[in-house]
Amino acid sequence: MKGKVWKYGDNINTDVLFPGKYTYTLMSPEEMAKHALEDLDPDFASQVKPGDVIVAGRNFGCGSSREQAAACLKAAGVQAVVARSFARIYYRNAINLGLPVIQCPEAVDVLEKGDEIEVDLAAGEIRSSKGNFSFPPFPDSVIGILKAGGLIAYTREKLKEKGVL
């Protein structure tokens, strides 16, 4: 799936990704998506299209462990987040909720807002109007979690395959 790049800087924290004041009031993914990044980029939520990709600097997702900070981007249709680095808890939360997070500083160096981009998870490649960049492909288990749409669904599938469920 092709999309456009949204470019941001370093230390994009969980408060600007999804404000704390909404964490116990907005529960549906659609509602969460409407407030994604609103304190950083008021245009994002209204203009983001399915397949778009966030490209950012260091320590993306630092701060709180709130899972909504990843859930709101996924609900907004974001295909993946590409960054120089991710805060540890965000990285896990994102994958466990089915949002691909890719560490690829080379792509961050070059890509700018509005560039056309496509992420091929199986091949470990980012293809863009500015060139192609490779990243170490995810192992099958992580691909499985992403394809299922998150860890709980993946776990359910896996247990069904094993005949446990």
């Binding site: 899972e67 990285y91 896990r92 466990n96 192992p139 998150g150 709980i152 896996k158």
Partner: peptide, 20 residues
């Protein structure tokens, strides 16, 4: 290692976790 609640529920079910 510290983890989230969702992951803990999943480990209770599968006895597995992915780690970098």
């Amino acid at each position: 290692i510290g983890i989230g609640r969702t992951e803990t529920a999943s480990i209770w079910a599968t006895d597995e976790i992915w780690l970098r």
